[in-house]
């Protein structure tokens, strides 16, 4: 390689980077990015599996001191759940009858799910994205919602042949229309710097309380209705402000995402 002085080389490399940035914005680099992902994805899959195994091993040691306390908490929880379960069975039987009556009136949306493994996270702490091991060859497309059994995770924003990038709802640029299950107070869920969630733009007249469950409202058509997002942890209400804000504890543990489900038959409305 021809030897260059440092300054010209710095200039040339920075210029290359700026050119790449420009071409990326024009979406010209897509084939090259696809190829790059094709090369990196298998190694990332492999290492992700290795680190996941190591993580699980160490988790056992780390949690040892908490086992007793957790056991007692779990036992109390089991007792509580048994009572709750009995009550819910009764409700379920009641609901089954009501549903039969309502079924001809109400559409009961059913979704097709595609399971995907999380193979990586965005190396930039400003961007909360995950990389999954399914892509266009599996039928994935942009804007498909991503969930786990615990609730909403995010939305597919970029698709490669064998992988895809998912924007988490905790990203600062993410916004999801939501409402309180109990009071129907509506707002917009946005990510915060610490990786948590904030429900903004709740009208002053609306009632929202701690422990309310927050669901997607379906407004705007970007996400299906009634997906669980989390639970209200704190409400900030000041008379001098136009809106109230609520701190939301996400139902999904975003630091422990291993497998997610992509809803493949939901078509978001284009803006």
């Amino acid at each position: 390689m021809a030897r260059l002085r440092s300054e010209p080389l710095a200039f040339v490399l920075t210029l290359c980077a700026a050119l790449l940035l420009f071409l990326h914005q024009l979406n010209v680099l897509k084939p090259a990015e696809d190829f790059g992902m094709l090369m990196l994805a298998p190694a990332q899959d492999f290492l992700s599996a290795v680190f996941s195994g190591i993580d699980r091993q160490f988790a056992g040691f780390r949690d040892a001191q908490d086992w007793r306390q957790r056991y007692e908490e779990r036992q109390a929880l089991i007792d509580q759940l048994l009572v709750e379960n009995t009550r819910l069975r009764e409700k379920e039987a009641e609901n089954a009858t009501l549903r039969e009556l309502l079924s001809f009136k109400q559409a009961n949306p059913t979704y097709n799910f595609l399971a995907a493994e999380v193979t990586g996270r965005d190396p930039n702490p400003l961007l909360r994205f995950i990389l999954i091991d399914r892509g266009s060859s599996d039928g994935l497309a942009r804007a498909m919602p991503v969930v786990t059994s615990r609730g909403l995770v995010g939305q597919v924003i970029e698709v490669y042949p064998h992988s895809a990038k998912v924007m988490l709802i905790t990203d600062l640029a993410s916004s999801v229309n939501a409402l309180s299950q109990e009071t129907r107070a509506a707002g917009v869920i946005q990510g915060d710097v610490n990786g948590g969630l904030v429900m903004r733009f709740i009208a002053q007249g609306e009632k929202i309380d701690k422990a309310n469950v927050v669901l997607t409202s379906g407004l705007g058509g970007r996400f299906p209705k009634a997906l669980v997002i989390g639970q209200v942890q704190d409400v900030r209400q000041r008379d001098v402000e136009l809106y109230q804000e609520a701190e939301i504890r996400p139902s999904v543990n975003f630091n422990a995402l291993d497998t997610v489900l992509v809803i493949t038959n939901f078509t978001p409305e284009e803006k």
Partner: peptide
């Protein structure tokens, strides 16, 4: 390549 950010961002900044 592994980030959702624009390609070239880290390349440029890490070069500098």
């Amino acid at each position: 390549l592994l980030s959702a950010g624009p390609v070239g961002l880290n390349a440029g900044l890490l070069t500098l």
